[in-house]
Simulated assay, not measured.
Amino acid sequence: MTAATSWQKSTFSGQQGEQCVEVAAQADTIWIRESDVQGMAARASRAGFAALIAGVKAGCFDR
């Protein structure tokens, strides 16, 4: 991840921007961060990120 990384904000974050999730893609890596904590980010492979999104859509993480 570099200073020039191009981050995209989730369209579900709302207009206030208080609870934003952002992602960025670089080669085979997907970076994920919370917009108000820009110094930290988690990284995943493209396959790992796809599995995360599939799990979220399937409700695997619902409580």
Rank of each mutant, 00 (worst) to 15 (best):
Q38H: 10
A41S: 12
V21Y: 02
M1L: 13
D28E: 03
D36E: 12
G17L: 04
L52M: 14
T2G: 14
S13A: 13
C60A: 13
V21M: 03
E34S: 07
F61G: 10
F61Y: 15
G17N: 06
E34M: 03
Q15C: 03
M40L: 13
E18C: 05
V23M: 05
V56K: 08
E18T: 11
W31M: 11
G59W: 04
A51V: 01
A42I: 13
Q16R: 06
A27M: 00
K57F: 04
M1P: 10
A42K: 03
V56S: 11
F61M: 07
R43T: 15
T5G: 01
M1F: 09
A41W: 05
A51N: 04
F12T: 08
L52F: 15
A58C: 02
A25V: 15
A25I: 09
V21G: 02
A3S: 14
Q15W: 04
K9M: 07
A54I: 03
V37C: 03
Q38W: 10
Q38K: 14
A4P: 02
C20Y: 02
A42M: 13
A25F: 14
M1S: 13
R43F: 09
A42G: 08
W7H: 03
G39A: 15
S13M: 03
W7S: 02
T29Q: 08
A4Y: 02
